[in-house]
Design a protein around this nucleic acid. Structure first.
Lengths: 208, 208
DNA sequence: AACTGTGAAGTTTTTCACAGCC
DNA sequence: GGCTGTGAAAAACTTCACAGTT
């Protein structure tokens, strides 16, 4: 019944899988072998039915009466999300924000390796950030094509973000993590995710 | 018809308002006076009907045949979101991540002022990060109570995040922006938002 | 006894489509 | 002609509840 190939799986479901994966990894770190949709739901503030239904899109990962083997479920989810491999990522913009992004250990730890950094500021080009040489944006297209890089992070000012995105997409990038506080217009086959801490704060002040 | 007071407005609607606000602010910067739900929708990749319906929850902000006065709509949205004022924010954890958060200019620019930083590492206590003195976590409770701080950002390792959240909530914090890659369990009257760039990346790799 | 996987029911969210106004 | 605000319809999503398995 579950159909892994055709992309009829709701986006919202895909969005929860990384959360499940993160919680499962934590459980594994705590030395646990088995869990249940109920326990996972409690930890995440999500109903157990939703977790079961989400997982059921991809196959029967659990055992009735027992629950889910944590290591196995992690492995399966990584496969579904295609994070059972290392991804090479490009970073554009090495100002304050870009440098902070480059220094963040969490990317490498979880399979995303920053292999290139670009900036238009010639005073930054040639320097090294966390072992990655900063290149001129002029070389962006060539580098990304040659290395077949599919994922990029944008950490430039809002004014330049759309132009950078256009460059990246032209060079073959298909997934963009945008730290600039602006919406990007991209073709349907390109995915964008946004990180803007202020919008998160503004979402909470409503309730205060 | 619209009812601003009773909190029967869907969460998902509130979540989109900061996005609208950001796009409108940008339009204003571009020197524009008036816009329409259609234009805004195009920029954001959202249907015009959705924008109109979202806004209609809070009142009739637009004019038929004309559209929306940008400055007026910004003002109204800020009021709804309660960001027509400055908020004082506490930061817990001043390791690499916490320092990067403290240095980010976007918070102050958009009305969130970091007024206190806490860390358990005594070698960091007493130092100053971007003009804010780092205090021992021992003084967290007193400081937050005295200054009636309602918003905090957590930038400590995953292992300590829940304990820090408990402390903050006990001291009166009602909104938490959590940079630690772990889910927090909090009472119903406390709001949490998460920033974990890796989950965003993992959400996109599925489609590659 | 405990738990999954899943149709069916229920709820929420989005889109449609149009009256009313500028 | 162009646009908003909004009921009604449609679509998407979540929860229920239970048969089936360990």
């Amino acid at each position: 019944m579950p159909n892994v190939l055709s992309s009829n799986i709701p986006d919202i479901v895909i969005g929860r899988l990384p959360i499940y994966l993160r919680a499962l990894t934590r459980l594994a770190q705590e030395g646990r072998d088995v869990t249940s949709s109920h326990e996972l739901g409690q930890r995440l503030g999500i109903s157990s039915a939703q977790i079961r239904k989400d997982l059921s899109h991809f196959g029967g990962f659990g055992k009735q009466g027992t629950g889910y083997q944590i290591a196995y479920l992690i492995e399966q989810l990584k496969q579904v999300l295609k994070v059972d491999q290392e991804w090479e990522v490009a970073l554009v913009g090495v100002g304050d924000l870009g440098r902070a992004v480059a220094h963040y250990r969490g990317f490498a730890e979880r399979g995303f390796r920053i292999v290139a950094a670009f900036d238009t500021d010639s005073s930054k080009v040639g320097k090294s950030i966390d072992g990655v040489a900063v290149q001129s944006t002029d070389t962006l297209d060539t580098f990304i094509r040659e290395h077949k890089i599919k994922i990029a992070m944008i950490a430039v000012p809002a004014e330049s973000a759309q132009a950078v995105a256009d460059l990246l997409i032209e060079a073959g990038v298909r997934a963009i993590l945008n730290y600039a506080p602006i919406n990007l217009n991209v073709p349907d086959n390109v995915h964008v995710q946004y990180i803007d801490p202020v919008t998160h704060l503004q979402r909470m002040t409503y309730y205060l």
